[in-house]
């Protein structure tokens, strides 16, 4: 008798598998559909606003006309400032967590702290920034206060990425350096850290993307409704893209007239994130190629 290769049970299993796959595919596709819908509405509504003038001019007539130049520059300042302020502390913490501490209670406490910091709502950062940087330290509503607040916001992201990057460096490298009589610090500085740079850059990318789009942390600490000039010192207020969009959408004398300006600004914000990511990814790929192991 020939073995029976089809049966009712097997047929049912096959159907169950098909259904499961269909559901999984559908879930994956729905994420793309959502992204596509957002992109579509932003592009179709905003592309008409895009022009060289839009990027290079100041807003005019109560922000119902003109460009977004100061907000663009302000966002750039705030983001770059946040990364510059955050990165040294993040790298130092990551080194300590991955290389010096021998595990134990303190490390666990600190790790929980870092993770909790990542989960704090951004408006809380904004209020903290207002209370501490603006008031207690007396920085006032300023570029510096905003950058510091954003730096706190992205600190856990950078620490985690840094720690992961450092731990991904093969133990081999560390041992090789130590076996030559290097101190731990020397090994970290000359072998481990340079090898971990691509991973740390990943953290910077994530941090930048997060910082540039945040509104709440800068609302009370740095953002200006309107400025007729670019910020010149760290204690100047700045305009920033996300806040500018918020203002145009809620405080404008004529929301409908400025719809395409709002969408255009949002599109530019998205483009900036994309561009920065692209830049960092290429840079990372180049560094990684040089440090292949």
């Amino acid at each position: 008798m020939i073995a029976q290769v089809t049966s009712e049970g097997q047929r049912r299993k096959r159907i169950a598998q098909r259904i499961a796959f269909a559901l999984l595919t559908l879930s994956t596709v729905s994420a793309f559909v959502a992204l596509g819908a957002i992109l579509y509405s932003m592009i179709s509504n905003g592309v008409s606003a895009l022009s060289w003038q839009f990027l290079s001019e100041f807003p005019r007539k109560m922000m119902t006309e003109g460009g977004i130049y100061p907000a663009l520059v302000g966002s750039l300042y705030l983001t770059v400032g946040a990364v510059l302020l955050s990165l040294p502390f993040a790298v130092a913490s990551a080194i300590w967590l991955s290389a010096y501490s021998r595990g134990g209670l303190w490390v666990r406490v600190i790790r929980v702290g870092v993770n909790s910091l990542a989960g704090v709502p951004s408006i809380v950062f904004g209020l903290l920034g207002l209370a501490f940087f603006v008031k207690v330290l007396g920085l006032g509503v300023s570029l510096l206060a905003g950058a510091l607040t954003l730096a706190l916001l992205i600190l856990p992201i950078l620490i985690r990425a840094g720690e992961e990057a450092l731990q991904a460096v093969p133990m081999n490298f560390r041992e090789g350096a130590l076996a030559l009589g290097a101190t731990k610090w020397h090994a970290v500085r000359t072998v481990v850290l340079p090898t971990a740079i691509p991973g740390i850059l990943t953290g910077v990318i994530l941090g930048v993307s997060r910082a540039i789009g945040e509104t709440a942390p800068i609302m009370f600490t740095a953002a200006a409704f309107y400025m007729s000039r670019l910020p010149e010192t760290l204690s100047d207020k700045v305009m920033a893209l996300p806040y500018h969009i918020f203002v145009m959408a809620t405080e404008s004398p004529n929301y409908y007239k400025t719809r395409n300006l709002q969408f255009g600004a949002a599109l530019v914000l998205l483009g900036m994130v994309l561009l920065m990511n692209l830049g960092a990814v290429t840079w990372r790929a180049r560094v990684r190629r040089r440090k292949q192991w």
């Binding site: 081999n172 041992e175 090789g176 076996a179 030559l180 340079p194 090898t195 040089r290 192991w293």
Partner: peptide, 12 residues
């Protein structure tokens, strides 16, 4: 007292 490892581990 120097050491050579099981798996070659040149630095990058």
């Amino acid at each position: 007292i120097g050491m050579v490892f099981q798996r070659p581990n040149p630095f990058p």
